[in-house]
Design a protein around this nucleic acid. Structure first.
Lengths: 231, 231
DNA sequence: CAACCTGCTTGCGCGAGCGCAAAGACACTG
DNA sequence: CAGTGTCTTTGCGCTCGCGCAAGCAGGTTG
């Protein structure tokens, strides 16, 4: 197996406190994996044998309910770690991360997590913080789902996406990976139909510009107003 | 300040790996606080200066939205730690824990968290696991809110409550702290009216028995069937 | 270039559950 | 024990958004 170059991960805040030597030692235990669009890194319910770091691309983490309904729990962005179920004392993965765009992933066997943390407590602190943020985010979503009507939820979801994955593009901000109406529906707890209607309405108002698996936000401020619900 | 007796916390899984000496050292830094019913341990948005362990009683953690709506994020049970925002690198508390029953709380200044973790890495592992479980639970709730209709959500919430705070009582299982229809509504993202109607219907079917701030589940299995949604 | 597939749009009707409103029940206070 | 405040029940109308169904567009394949 070829050694993985430090430069791939050097810039990540996760590792900024590590020395080059420590980093190399970590990378020596890792494998690199390409995940083509539409493919899953692992499946919900599978035994957790590895944990991961997304280097490039984008993953949607889904969960399916007993009756086959699907929801998107979160989106994994480059630099995020994911699938560290073992650190949380689970032994199976709770969701399925699927590549929304061609992705590149670093994989470590779960056993090394303990070693890494021992050698470098910073990593544990960092991981803890990461989970904390996710918990926060989850609570925010719960609150939104409990109190807000669909249009505002969709607005919030879109704003979150342009915040996490926005790329400036001429007249506005583009969501930088392929995302369908169905996806947005699964993030906001509604149906593809309703999302389509809402986006059409927004397009008529000049707030956004749609397209097949594409979304361009022309007026983020306007959307934010909508999200805050001044009817 | 009087020393706090080890026996109060010895039995908690959180501390089972600690020696008596270590435990005493921790307790030496703690203060004990009684929280009367209806009172908050701290307020949402307040600077995080302490973290806590619930010894006795029951707390409901609420968040309020910008427009004044309230939701219950979770319930804190005896033995749970809470308010360790600093460990998650926040410096304010994200919610308000209010005593649903007369409660007893151990309080530590946030600074000692680092010390404790250094001395006893087990604590960090434990904390991580705790947050992991909460994240899991949060995702479960998101999934429920996104895919299930109100009656099933309420069923799930009640089942969770009897699981976490159920006490066997003659004909069924009682929820062991005062809980109102309003509370259940705020846990499931609906209104007090709808909850009341649902519980009335269940009572007619012999599934539960209601009362002012009380709930007794007579047929947990029946409720579970309902929650799984075999209409 | 035609055929096809997948994702998007739109119309229509219906039903769950919310909002409002009013009244009843229970517990605590003086 | 009457009075008061909080919690709960129940009725009624209305609206949001879902479900179904049909048609459309754009990109990909033979």
């Amino acid at each position: 197996m070829a050694a993985i170059d430090r430069s791939l991960v050097r810039a990540l805040p996760m590792f900024e406190k590590l020395s080059d030597a420590e980093l190399d030692r970590m990378l020596a235990r890792a494998t690199l994996r390409r995940v083509p669009i539409g493919q899953a890194v692992f499946e919900q319910g599978q035994k957790a044998t590895q944990f991961f770091l997304l280097l490039h691309g984008r993953l949607k983490v889904t969960q399916v309910t007993a009756d086959g309904q699907q929801i998107i729990v979160r989106v994994v962005h480059p630099g995020d770690i994911f699938g560290f179920a073992k650190a949380l004392m689970r032994d199976d993965y709770p969701g399925t991360p699927t590549a929304a765009a061609e992705s590149l992933v670093l994989c470590w066997p779960t056993e090394v997590w303990g070693l890494f943390v021992e050698q470098n407590p910073h990593l544990a602190v960092n991981a803890m913080q990461t989970i904390g943020q996710r918990l926060q985010e989850a609570h925010t979503r719960i609150r939104e789902m409990a109190t807000e009507e669909v249009e505002r939820r969709v607005a919030h979801a879109v704003l979150r996406l342009i915040d996490q994955a926005g790329r400036k593009e001429g007249e506005g901000i583009r969501i930088d990976f392929p995302i369908s109406r169905q996806d947005i529906a699964e993030m906001t707890g509604t149906t593809l139909h309703t999302v389509s209607r809402i986006l059409s309405a927004w397009e008529a108002k000049g707030l956004v510009e749609g397209g097949r698996q594409k979304l361009l936000v022309r007026d983020a401020a306007g959307l934010a107003t909508l999200a805050e619900g001044e009817s």
